[in-house]
Amino acid sequence: MPHLPLDGSARIPGMPADVLSTVSWAAETLSREPRQLFHVVRVLLSDLRRATGMDGAELYLADPQQSVLILSGYAGKDAEAFLEKCVFHFGEGFPGLAAAGRQIVETRNLESDERYLRERVRALGYHAFLSYPLLLPHAVVGVLNLAARDVRQVEAAKRSLALISPLLAASLYAVMTSLGERTLERVRQARTPRDRALALLEDSLEASSGLRAALRPLHGDQIETHPDQMRPCGCDGKAPCPAQAGQICVSGMPELPCAALPVNPHVVCLPVWDAGEVKAVTTVQFSARGDLHAESVAPLLWISRLAAGALELPTTAAAPETPVWLDIETLGAFRIRRGGEVLSPKDFRRRQAYQLLKLLVTRWGRPLHTDELCEAL
């Protein structure tokens, strides 16, 4: 999926300047083309920052399980400082507190507010920070953050967010649901369990610009988009897998750690939830060139949200195959039974194979020369 520059300099032709018009444009665009999510988010944040007079704007999206918030877009200067921490758990830091409490969290004394967890932003002289939750009755969709050095901008920013947040929350939720519905349709059209898993993986790659992907059910064989080309996960059968326990794991990201993941190439391991349980782990590998965008994680989680049930993943490990025994009777008529079923010479692909077995059994323990075999057959 293509991305716009962080400073929002790239604009779509005909893009309105007014922030309310921008939100309406964003809602309409996302309803038609949900895979343009990050185009729209970055343009929206850029216009919102300018309209409110704030210095930085960022959007965190919540995962479907309502446990973490993941950075999905930023507009403004000092991007590296704001990227110091890209993930907040519910109840952690300003975004997490806003999500957990479903209310605005703000400060005009950022330099001394212990709730704020990004020291590099604080060191750059920012004084005002505002976290505004994007809410639906049944879910927290995400959190909008605005930051400024001038505290006089806060009240105007709050009024703007109060106007746009309901429409923005509904639009973002609709986009995430639409991504999941499209994947669900592809999964349902597939005929075999393997094809269903591949449909999910291929949609995941398309949405995230990943290189390769694999689905590792808790019970069953791993399925890969590019067999034998993915670096094996260090958790694979050797150590407890955090993703199997419901954790999101991203290589090189300290907020979402997994000691078994390689730092290079970039890899994410995401739990696949179904009926309140983790049924599999999706692993997506990204290019070794450049940084892994945290923004890819939330859409990947939402894509698998609806499709997981249609994958029809096994719920228990396959029972080991019971060995089939051959019973051979040599007293009286010569009979062979396999699993209790009598075999006739026709059940052997070649009649000579039946005769050879009969000869070897009846001459058991006695040497048999090649000439004798040829004559007997």
Rank of each mutant, 00 (worst) to 15 (best):
S171E: 01
G73R: 03
A147L: 09
V268K: 02
H226F: 13
Q66G: 09
E224F: 14
S31Y: 09
L377Y: 11
Y132L: 01
F94R: 03
A26D: 01
C374S: 13
G96H: 07
G246R: 08
L306K: 10
A128D: 04
A243P: 09
T183N: 07
L97H: 10
H89L: 15
L172T: 00
H127R: 15
L360T: 06
L44F: 08
L134S: 01
L163T: 05
L130H: 05
E321A: 15
V141K: 00
Q66M: 11
H293G: 06
A51F: 09
R231W: 15
F334D: 05
L368F: 09
S208K: 01
V68Q: 01
R35C: 08
S31L: 13
M1D: 07
V272Y: 07
P345S: 00
R212C: 05
S209I: 06
W302E: 02
S160F: 12
V43Y: 06
D203G: 04
D18L: 04
P133W: 05
G365I: 02
S178A: 11
S9K: 10
S165W: 04
Y173G: 02
E58I: 06
W325C: 11
A81K: 06
R289S: 14
L261H: 04
L256R: 05
G252V: 08
P262G: 03
G53I: 00
P95T: 02
S9W: 11
G309K: 04
H226Y: 10
P95M: 10
Q352N: 12
Q355M: 14
G142Q: 01
T183A: 05
A199H: 01
V281Y: 00
Y173S: 05
R35V: 07
A17R: 14
A319F: 09
S251V: 06
I104G: 00
E202Q: 14
R289M: 14
P217H: 11
S344K: 15
L59F: 11
I70E: 01
M176E: 04
L4Y: 02
A147E: 03
E111M: 11
A298C: 13
K238G: 07
A148N: 03
C86H: 13
E295N: 11
P314C: 03
I303T: 03
L172S: 01
T22W: 00
A148Y: 05
V263M: 10
L256N: 02
A27M: 06
R152C: 01
T225K: 06
A62S: 10
A75Q: 02
M15T: 07
N145C: 12
R118I: 15
